[in-house]
Amino acid sequence: MIEHITLFIISLIANTLSSLAGGGAGLLQLPAIIFLGLPFSVALATHKVASVALGVGASIKHLKHGQFSLPLVVIMIIGALPGVILGARVIVEIPPQLSMWALGALTIALGVYSFLKPSLGQTDNLKNLNLRGYLIGSLGLFIIGFLNGSLTSGTGLFVTMWLIHWFGMAYGRAVSYTLVMVGILWNGTGAVTLGLVSQIQWDWLPALLLGSLMGGYIGAYLVIAKGNKLVKRCFEVLTILAGISLWIKASTY
């Protein structure tokens, strides 16, 4: 019982912060699952399944807010899901240390970049909504999708920044796309793929799913209620912490 309560509390905190920042739930949730005794591949598959509930919880609030564009939804599916599947199949075959070091550096760079640009993502200035823009946007999402399938923490943060940088979204809008599309479709695809090549700790899922669902909803409520400034600050803090977490994990793996 204590184990399940601990899992719920960690999941609730991690997914509330992730829902606010647009990614990074694995910063707390995945290391905690590993610390409690699961092998890396089993912990990753279990975390991916639980992360789907984050997207469900966030979508309950964000979909009511109504700010989704069909072409962008389509490229986030067609462009990214092949990368997610490929990444999830690759991760069980390669040592993750080098990838963790590289991803950690890139994740920290995202936070520093955002911090150095105070006006970034504060208003919607949509751009690249044409065929060329969608094709390049899809390529970027494919690469991030591969990282999402193969690595553990922070790839949702990359999606959020890519949507802000390439399509000119404000933080709030970008986070809503990330949580709904990445949380449900990307993580769902990754969870199924990992479940086929690894295994899932099913008896841990109820606590993790409940924490993810509630955290996703609470974070989405705060995004809509408090606006882009709070989301930007949370994004910057979570990216830097996620990058440091990946470095620590790589050095002790």
Rank of each mutant, 00 (worst) to 15 (best):
E3D: 07
H4P: 02
L7C: 05
I10V: 14
I10K: 09
S11M: 03
T16F: 08
S19I: 02
S19Y: 01
A21E: 06
G24C: 00
G24D: 01
A25L: 04
G26C: 08
L28A: 01
P31T: 06
A32K: 04
I34V: 15
L36S: 07
S41A: 11
A43E: 06
A45I: 09
T46Q: 05
K48N: 06
S51P: 02
V56C: 00
S59N: 02
S59V: 02
I60G: 00
H62V: 00
L63R: 13
G66I: 01
S69R: 13
S69Q: 14
P71E: 07
L72V: 07
L72Q: 11
V73A: 13
I75G: 00
M76R: 06
I77S: 01
I78P: 06
A80I: 03
A80D: 00
G87A: 05
A88P: 10
R89E: 14
V90S: 06
V90I: 14
I94L: 11
P95S: 12
P96E: 07
L98T: 12
L98V: 07
S99T: 07
M100C: 02
G104K: 09
L106D: 03
F115T: 14
L116P: 07
K117G: 04
K117D: 12
K117C: 04
P118A: 07
Q122A: 04
Q122N: 11
N125P: 03
N128Q: 12
N130E: 03
N130L: 07
Y134M: 08
I136C: 11
L139W: 08
G140A: 05
G145A: 09
F146G: 09
N148F: 02
N148I: 14
G149R: 09
S150C: 08
S150R: 08
F158L: 14
V159S: 10
T160W: 06
M161S: 14
I164P: 03
I164D: 07
H165F: 14
W166N: 13
W166K: 11
F167K: 11
M169W: 02
G172T: 13
S176Y: 03
I184N: 03
L185H: 00
W186T: 08
W186M: 15
G190S: 05
V192K: 04
G195E: 13
L196A: 11
S198N: 13
S198G: 02
I200Q: 06
W204T: 09
L209S: 03
L210H: 03
L210K: 06
G211A: 08
L213I: 01
G216Y: 00
Y217I: 11
I218Y: 02
G219K: 01
Y221S: 04
I224A: 02
K226Y: 06
N228H: 06
K232R: 15
K232H: 10
K232G: 10
L238Y: 01
L241Y: 10
I244K: 08
S245L: 05
L246D: 07
I248Y: 05
K249L: 14
A250D: 12
T252I: 15
Y253G: 15
